[in-house]
Amino acid sequence: MTNLPHAFQGLTLTQIGVLVPDLALGIQTYKEVLGLENWAIYTFSSAVVPNLTYRGQTANCTFRIALAGEGPQIELIEPLSGNSVYAEWIEARGYGVHHFGFLVPSLVEMLGRLEVEGCVRYKPEAATA
Rank of each mutant, 00 (worst) to 15 (best):
A127L: 02
G71F: 09
P124N: 01
S46E: 14
V48P: 14
E78G: 00
L76C: 09
E37Q: 12
G35Y: 03
A40T: 12
A59E: 04
I41S: 08
V97K: 14
P79L: 11
E32N: 12
T43E: 15
E75N: 04
R55G: 04
I65S: 06
G71S: 05
Q9S: 10
A129S: 09
F8P: 00
D22N: 09
E32Q: 15
A129P: 09
A126T: 06
A7Q: 01
Q73A: 00
H6I: 07
Y95C: 15
G71N: 08
R113C: 08
S106L: 10
L76V: 00
E117I: 02
P21F: 10
P124F: 05
A59W: 03
P79A: 05
H99I: 12
A129H: 12
P21H: 11
S81W: 03
H99P: 11
Y122L: 11
L76P: 01
T128R: 07
I65W: 09
A24G: 07
N83I: 11
E117W: 05
K123G: 08
F8Q: 01
F102T: 04
R93A: 15
G26R: 00
V85W: 03
L36D: 11
R113L: 12
N3Y: 09
L114R: 08
A127Y: 00
E70P: 06
I74L: 06
E88T: 10
E70H: 02
G82W: 00
I65T: 01
Y122E: 13
Q28Y: 08
L19D: 05
G56H: 07
P50R: 13
L19Y: 04
R93V: 14
L13H: 03
V20H: 08
S84C: 01
I27S: 08
E109T: 05
E115K: 14
E117H: 04
T43V: 14
